[in-house]
Design a protein around this nucleic acid. Sequence first.
DNA 1: CCGTCCGTGCTACACTGTTGCAAAAACGCT
DNA 2: AGCGTTTTTGCAACAGTGTAGCACGGACGG
Lengths: 147, 147
Amino acid sequence: MPSVPSSHARDIITAHGGRITRARIAVLEALHASARPQSHDEIAQALRAAGIAHDRVTLYRALDWLVAQGIARRIAGAQRAWRFEAAHGGSHRHAHFHCDRCGQVLCLEDVQPEAGAAHLPGYRIDRAELVLHGACPGCSPNLPAHA
Amino acid sequence: MPSVPSSHARDIITAHGGRITRARIAVLEALHASARPQSHDEIAQALRAAGIAHDRVTLYRALDWLVAQGIARRIAGAQRAWRFEAAHGGSHRHAHFHCDRCGQVLCLEDVQPEAGAAHLPGYRIDRAELVLHGACPGCSPNLPAHA
DNA sequence: CCGTCCGTGCTACACTGTTGCAAAAACGCT
DNA sequence: AGCGTTTTTGCAACAGTGTAGCACGGACGG
């Protein structure tokens, strides 16, 4: 039961002057339905589970389009794979948490990276990306000393 | 003129109980000779330029070993490729700057990521990674509006 | 309904990194 | 120095992620 009905997804796509396609609707719903940033592969699995089978490349391109439109955001994830999240409010920047064990990524809505600390002459700083690494509750209990 | 002679590289390797091999010495010198974190490919080019040709895999393994020993540090870079830097002092954490245009990475020695801001019950936070994105002086002047 | 254009799907490719195994190098010992 | 043991190396093959080119199909507008 996604909090965003598919009609809303259509509205968003239309508002950006894009064509309404199954791929974009499905991807956008998948992003909205999840609180955590999703990897490309996770989205593909979600689509398969929903009975919507799309090509890998189509998924990449749908995501690219969503990011280009500012509808979704692309953040660096573990395993040198991108992760994608819906850009709810707009330019609400927040930090992320990476579990080094299960690879899960979590949004830390209340933590904002500080970009003002650095003063680099000649450099232009557009944004700051803060990633906290550690272990999530599911992985924390059964931790060896330092594996 | 590297500030670290090869004899020093040998000392470091020996101190960690490793065998002295051309690959390790060359990689360690390449890391020490550069102020910025180097990608695997850049190190390979440096070795080729120095007349030392090694297999790609050998380079990966030498870097893995250096990281495992704490001699080098592995940081996330652009283009989903790792970058490596010499771990000078030990556990001196610092932020990094990524130029989104030329892909160059720079160490910001005087900027330290703040890990204490987040309070996550059940989560264990090991380290914080702060990456500033923007444009370096070489890319800054000729910037289009928002390309 | 029909033409146009964008999006899709397929194949093939590039790049980054890893695994297995035999040959070679480094080391310790005599 | 010579020898045997252990670690590294080099090679080939593979896995995962992402991209390029091109023909077909669906979406949109008349």
